[in-house]
Design a binder for these strands. Structure first.
Length: 269
DNA sequence: TATCAGGCCCTAG
DNA sequence: CTAGGGCCTGAT
């Protein structure tokens, strides 16, 4: 068990922020998730967060996964005090982190996400994992499925993928899995590219458009200047920023602010 | 029954 | 380069 304190960390908001489709609530202030082939349960009491894993695994995997080295308070403090909307959004979303998730998993997950709602995205990804992922048992006896490998998805037929409820996205998953499995798009090279180059490369994948590419850049490559524009963001941009969002001011933090805006628009009553 | 959900592809003009 | 139609599916 590892316990940390962080004033800018909220498991519930991270879970509901829609960037991770394999994290779910499993008790009072308690969540579980599968990432990088590992199963984790974590609980939160105020600013105190407990990870059910060894110190070594925490240091090696989860510390980076939850972006615990980044100073989110500083980012929030940098917001223009005259921008009431952004100040409110950040206050509302305080505790959200930009996770460092698996590149391949994010590519497939955000292809699934297009023109789709979060509940169904989770369902589709769950089916893919159960059907094509490796079954494992955690140290505390929980059975779970890893996210399928490029090889396993590339080996699936279009019909079988269609049967997972992916709809018209099946052909995107099929072709993209094959492109990656056969090295037509090299994931390792993507990691060393800057934002613009990585985005251009991702756009070569069938079924990956501007929005999905930006999500992958932000949630897997930690290119925090990526600013995914979905229907919610577009709505907010039109209503709150008719003259454009101040990207010059926020630079590398734009993507993090995007998450606050998205979460705020999605959840506020 | 129609519309929408964290879009993308393809074809016309 | 921009606009518009078509696309799986389940929830409301």
């Amino acid at each position: 068990m590892v316990t940390i304190e962080n004033h800018n960390f909220s498991l519930s908001k991270i879970c509901e922020s829609g960037q991770c489709f394999r994290m779910e609530k499993c008790g009072d202030n308690r969540y579980r998730l599968v990432a990088f082939g590992k199963y984790l349960e974590a609980a939160q009491d105020g600013d105190c967060i407990t990870f059910d894993c060894a110190q070594e695994e925490y240091a090696h995997v989860w510390k980076d996964y939850f972006d615990l080295e980044t100073d989110y308070a500083g980012i929030i403090a940098s917001i223009d005090r005259d921008d009431m909307y952004l100040v409110s959004a950040a206050e509302y979303g305080k505790g959200i982190r930009i996770l460092n998730q698996d590149l391949w998993e994010m590519i497939i997950s955000f292809i699934v996400s297009q023109q789709n709602n979060i509940k169904r995205i989770r369902k589709c990804i769950g089916i893919l994992c159960e059907k094509y992922g490796e079954k494992r048992t955690s140290v505390n006896g929980m059975e779970y499925f890893e996210f399928p490998t490029p090889e396993s998805l590339a080996g699936a037929s279009l019909e079988d993928l269609y049967a997972c409820g992916l709809g018209y996205r099946s052909k995107y998953i099929c072709q993209t899995a094959n492109s990656i499995y056969h090295g037509e798009v090299d994931l390792e090279k993507l990691r060393s590219m800057d934002y613009d180059a990585a985005k251009r490369e991702l756009l070569r994948l069938y079924g990956v458009g501007v929005k999905v590419a930006d999500c992958v850049c932000l949630f897997a490559l930690h290119q925090t200047d990526a600013f995914p524009r979905d229907t919610h963001i577009n709505k907010v941009m039109a209503a709150q920023y008719p003259d454009g969002f101040p990207f010059e001011r926020y630079g590398k933090n734009s993507g993090i602010l995007q998450q606050y805006i998205f979460y705020y628009d999605l959840n506020k009553k």
